[in-house]
Every structure is written in structure tokens, then in C-alpha cells.
Nucleic acid binder design. Structure first.
Lengths: 343, 343
DNA sequence: CAGGAGTGAGAGAGCGCTCTCTCTGCCGGT
DNA sequence: ACCGGCAGAGAGAGCGCTCTCTCACTCCTG
């Protein structure tokens, strides 16, 4: 594999520069630059000559050089929480596949980085990154606020815990929970319960609120509420409480679990408690993550259009990088219901 | 949010440059550069003065400028197959969490990119990427060969389909299959079968070979072999064939499925066919992916140390970028067996 | 026909860094 | 005392690009 010393390999061979293209086309560097960057004030004929020179030489601009003068990295960051856990989440992959198609045609790179604050801020300050998308930030995370205060381009993958002037993209959580309630009710359920997310998170709050409101709208009594924590074990624990408490007397026949993962914890508990799903109790989850497909029975669940949302995040971020003075704008997407065998 | 015109925001404020640090420390740019890059020939005292200037100013080098002269991007690419599918695979996340800890301390960025050939080659040629890690390449993919021929730094996440002079990291597939066989035999199974991967892939071949060899080593008869395709549906299909064919007469009591995903397809088929797992037939999968945990019963499976392998890929790639003339070297990792309820 | 406006192209500075080359000063050897 | 050698620091030339400034030329208008 090693090239004999003195023999030029492809790696050694210097790429073509603007200078050379200009020489070949018989014009100045500036003109070639104009053509490359699509500046309109170039004579048609000259433009064609330059374009030919570009294609015969196979020229592509050196990004570092361009970066140096434009002070743009041509790259945005996807910031992962510091604990590795999240990366295993299929959600992460869906975000990536939503973002890439938007930024690739723009020649923008997607850089993966962990949420170390200094590093993220440095990366932006030193023009290694033009802006960042934050996913899975929890309430205590100071990073969003720090970035905002430094006036650095940032987009959040969910509504921030406390209101702040920040661009975010989210799904209408309450509407999603409403979808679940509507579905349960129209499937004949009358005694509803919900296992919520942690109630200090916006998602936890909104899903509970949406569920309650929809239940009330149907004229049904207040649902039984057990707080969970978005984990599988938390879901199992909550389901146990449900069985031990009110559920044993007045049986619940419709259960909305605020995340699929919690639902996969709850299902075996229900089964072991002698409740058949969906015959005795219908269950609806939230997220449409892979556990929803793999658990038994497969879960009816509320689906977030994650890819679309990610694409929108990318668009908003790029927009914000281009014109940082524009007011922030956020987008909320409508969820849909995916019906499977658990309801 | 919008800053009043004329007011300098943090984004506008120019970062500190070498020049300024040099002025403050009262030395030349070159000396500061020496300190930053850890060149030894700097007087102890002077070095301290410079270091102080650096920390008071909060200086960090501009990567674009450095890139321009060193012809190094300070970034490596993780190339995803063009179909989005793979990104949803938890495997992808494990690779990321293996790679990041290795390259971050080196100041190297991880860039996600799709496997478009032109783009990848361009990215390297134009010094946007120093090298790439290819995951999930299939046999027909010309990209590895193209990169090799162009002598660009590349590391493969698996043994290439046809032997070539390329750096790769892989798990010892045959040994993993052997682990599965040993486990089944020592659990009392005597009539073994396997659902293989596609036999044109190295992984498919190696896992079958390893399984067969281990079975023979135990003095048991040749196992029943049904070819699958690594998909859930393919696993179900193969299981049906198994039940319809020999299995119905002479019952198999131990089944090695060459991927967890196929196993999740096979399990319901076995159950519906009246075979209890693990009582009637013990099942072992391969990969230790998330379906293994979520399916019912949870799957005994062969685990690849993906994070470790990914870290090694990153190390090998960085090494290769630093000295492209070194001979290629590959690393093979040992798999382990994770025992759960399916066996 | 003069003069201003408009258009298209080139010259050249400079982005922030690395690195080679040069220079200074101090050491020891003869 | 002279000088070769070397450590340590500075000067300065770029890396490849963008972008402003300038200039030449054409076109329109009064």
C-alpha cells in the first residue's frame, strides 16, 4: 500500500486551485470566484469558458480557504447529551436522516458532538461550527441559555423548559395525547387512566394536559393519573401502582402511557396482573419508537414526524445563521396516531 | 433577540487571534504558535508568559486558518449507506459513542455523511475530511475500492467482501457462532439448526462456518441450515421453512439465528408452530441489538464489542491520516455471549 | 456631443495560521 | 582570543479564497 518515496500519490497531488482555473480560462481569479459563487455580473460567454475550465480541471473550492475569509464553517453541529445513552435511541437516527437531505445540497456538513459546554461554544466561536441543533436537553441543562445569551445560532428539538427567546421545533404534545384519548374513547373505553412522563418536563405536562382535556371533552370522568419517568422500569412501577390502587376495584379499560418505553414496561405487568391487552384494557403509547413495534402486542401509539421536524430544524438553523438579526420563530408539528394491536 | 444595528453582539465580536496574543505577550506570532503546538524549543520563562496571555485572552486557534496551511481538516467522516434505513439501527449509535471519545481529545470532528461517492471523495480531496469510516457497506459497493485506489485514508467496519489491501476492524464472526454452538450444546441441545445471513456476505459465511465447525467439534451431526437475509421477515420465512421441513419430523432443539432481527421474526413463528422457547427449542441470536432485549423471551445472543471496535477504527484512521505510508493493519475483536431467557 | 450612469472584469489586500529561513547570542573547543 | 555550533526567537512568505476598489468601456440622456 505504501507508495514508494518520491512517487506522487493521489493524496500528495495538490488539488486544483482557483488560480489554475483562472489561468486556463484566461481570466482573473476574481472572475472564476464569481462564477463559482453564482454572482450574476459575469458575461455569458466568459462564464461558459470558465465553467468549461472548471469541469475539465475538476476544480472544487477549498473549504478551509473559503471559511477563513467568509468566517463561516459550512458545518452545523448536532449536540448529543453527555451521557451516551441517547445515541442508542432510534430517535437520534431519525433526526440525522431528516437533517442530512436538507443541508447536503447546501454544502453544509453535519458534525456530531457531545454537549460539553466549553467545546460547543468554542466550536462556534472559532468558526468550526456555524450553529447547533440541541436534542434531548433536560431542564437543568444550562447550555441552551448560554448559547442564547452569547447570541449563537441554536435550534432546540423541543419546547424549552422555561420560556425563552429561542428557536425550537416541537410536536403538539397535547394534541397527540388528545389523539390517544379520542382513539380510546371511540374504541369503547370509558374508564381511562394515564401513566405520565416526569411532570417537571414540558412533554410530561403537555401530554397529561392534552389527555385530560380530551377526556373531559368526551364527558368522561377525570382519568386516573400515575406519574412515571419515561423509563421502562418506571412504566412497570406505575402499572403496578395502577393495579394495586383504584384499578383493582373499578377496572380501567383504557390506558394512555406517555412513552412507548414506559409502555413496554407496563405491558408485562398488566399481563401478569391478569389483564389482557387489548381485550380487558386497551393501551396507547407515545413516540412510535422501535419498542412499539417489537413489544407484544405491538403498540398503538402517537407518532411524531421526527424526520420532518429535523428537516425543519436544519432549515431554521441555516436561516438563522444566514441572518442572525431575524426574530426567532418556532414551528409546531401535528402528531398522528399509528394503530396497532394494543388497542 | 435581534441586536440593534451597530451594537456588537458576541457573534460579531472577532475572536482573539495569534497576533493579539503575541502582542500581549510581547513576542512574535511564531513563538505563540510554537507554544500552542507544543514545540519544545521555547524558553521556559517565555512559554509561561505566552501561556498566561493565552489564558487571559481566551485564545483558541482558528481551525480554518490552520487547516489552510496544514492541509488537514481536523475532521473524519462516518459514511452511512445511501438508504436511510441504517441510521435507525442502534448499531450506528454505538459506533458514534465509540468514536467520539477517541477523537474529541485530539480536536478532531466527526462528520456524518451519506455514501455518495463523489461527495465523499471530494470531501477528502478538498480537505474537508481527513479520512472516513465506512459502516454497512455491501458487497456491490464500489466506494471502498475507489477510496483505496485513490490512496485515501479509510477504515472499514467489517471485513471486505473480496480481500483487498484495506484497514478494517471486525469481530471474529466464526468464533461468535462457535460461542452460540457451544452454549446450545452445553445446555443439552443435540439436534441443531441455524438460520444464516445472506451467504454472499462475509458475515453470513463466517457465522455459518463457525457454527458448523463448532457443532462438528462436539461430535454432533451436521446442523440443519436455512438461508435468511438478516431481515425480520426473512427470519420468519426461514423459521416457517424449518417447521415445514425436517423440523416437523425430527425436532430441532437448538437454533442459532445469525442476527437478532431475524430471531425476532422467527420467535413468533416457532410459538405459533407450537414450539415453546426455551423449553422445546433454545434460540441464540447474534448482535445483541435492541430487539434482543425487547422481544419475548429476551434473546440469548452473541455480542460484538461495537463501541470498542469503533474506538479502534477511529484510532486506526487517525494513525493512517498521520502516516499514510505505513502498511495497513486490521484488528479482529473477540465476541462474547450474553445469556438471556431464550436458551 | 458631453457627461453621468451602469456594467463587467482585474488588481490586490487580507483572512489567521504554519513553517522555513535568518539572525542573534552564548557556549565550548582549539 | 577566535570561531564553529547550536539553541532560541523573529521575519516573512505563503496556504486558497473572497471582496472591495478601481478602471475601462458602453449606453443613455439632455
Amino acid at each position: 500500500m505504501a507508495a514508494p518515496p518520491g512517487i506522487k500519490t493521489d493524496v500528495d497531488r495538490r488539488p486544483v486551485t482557483l488560480e489554475e482555473v483562472a489561468r486556463i480560462a484566461g481570466v482573473s481569479r476574481a472572475t472564476v470566484s464569481r462564477v463559482v459563487n453564482g454572482v450574476a455580473t459575469v458575461d455569458r460567454e466568459l462564464r461558459q469558458v470558465v465553467e468549461k475550465a472548471i469541469s475539465t480541471t475538476g476544480y472544487t473550492p477549498n473549504r478551509a480557504a473559503r471559511s477563513l475569509v467568509t468566517r463561516r464553517a459550512g458545518a452545523i453541529g448536532l449536540v448529543l447529551p453527555e451521557e451516551g445513552r441517547t445515541v442508542h435511541d432510534p430517535y437520534f437516527g431519525r433526526v440525522v436522516s431528516g437533517v442530512l437531505p436538507v443541508i447536503r445540497p447546501l454544502g453544509v456538513q453535519l458534525v456530531l458532538t457531545t454537549g460539553d459546554h466549553r467545546e460547543v461554544v468554542d466550536d462556534i466561536r472559532q468558526h468550526r461550527l456555524d450553529g447547533v441543533i440541541l436534542i434531548h436537553t433536560h431542564g437543568a441543562d444550562p447550555l441552551p441559555r448560554q448559547l442564547i445569551e452569547a447570541n449563537l445560532p441554536v435550534v432546540l428539538a423541543a419546547r424549552p423548559v422555561r420560556p425563552m427567546s429561542i428557536t425550537f421545533v416541537d410536536v403538539d404534545q397535547a394534541a397527540g395525547a388528545g389523539l390517544a384519548a379520542d382513539h380510546l374513547v371511540s374504541s369503547g373505553c370509558r374508564r381511562l387512566a394515564t401513566i405520565t412522563g416526569p411532570l417537571e418536563t414540558p412533554a410530561g405536562q403537555d401530554r397529561l394536559r392534552g389527555f385530560r382535556e380530551a377526556v373531559a371533552r368526551h364527558g368522561l370522568p377525570e382519568p386516573v393519573v400515575v406519574e412515571g419517568d419515561f423509563s421502562r422500569e418506571g412504566g412497570a412501577e406505575a402499572a403496578r401502582k395502577l393495579l394495586a390502587g383504584r384499578l383493582s376495584g373499578l377496572d380501567v379499560d383504557g390506558l394512555f402511557v406517555a412513552s412507548d418505553l414506559m409502555a413496554t414496561g407496563a405491558l408485562p405487568v398488566l399481563r401478569n396482573g391478569g389483564r389482557r391487552v387489548p381485550e380487558d384494557v386497551k393501551v396507547v403509547g407515545f413516540d412510535d419508537s422501535s419498542p412499539a413495534v417489537e413489544c407484544d402486542p405491538p403498540l398503538t401509539t402517537v407518532r411524531q414526524p421526527v424526520e420532518d421536524m429535523a428537516a425543519e430544524m436544519a432549515r431554521l438553523l441555516v436561516e438563522r445563521v444566514d441572518r442572525p438579526d431575524r426574530p426567532v420563530s418556532s414551528v409546531v408539528f401535528a402528531p398522528t396516531l399509528v394503530v396497532r394491536q394494543s388497542s
